[in-house]
Amino acid sequence: MKLSREVIATEDKRKLQDISGEEVLSCYQCGKCSAGCAMTEAMDLLPHQVIRLLQLGQVEEALHSRTIWVCASCLACSARCPRGMNLPNVMESLRAQVLRPGDRSLNPADIPYELLEIIPEQALVAAFRKYT
């Protein structure tokens, strides 16, 4: 990884900050978020690693991570973060960066019919808010 002023402070990073309202530099990488996250098993990056990538200006890599789609916005991390980082907001800003140009990460047609039959409406509304 080559670092320079241009790499660290990109336009994308500024946009993420505007969407999330969070300053990623306030994270001191203690990992408490990752330690308590219920979803890490399906994540390729631990939550604190996503923040680290953003600190380093590696926005692209963060955007391509599975982690941002697996985060369930459960707020277990932010409730315990010693630095008051709203990490779920940062995850949402990354999702927004992908989705806002019109992409989607969940296709209604891909949801198995049997699941659709029984899953509560609430889940569908929430998922389409987060994934499309």
């Binding site: 789609w69 889940a123 994934y131």
Partner: peptide, 14 residues
């Protein structure tokens, strides 16, 4: 602890 919430709609992940 979180139950996984809406991620239930990505059944392949977990």
């Amino acid at each position: 602890e979180c139950c996984g919430s809406y991620v239930a709609l990505r059944p392949g992940e977990l």
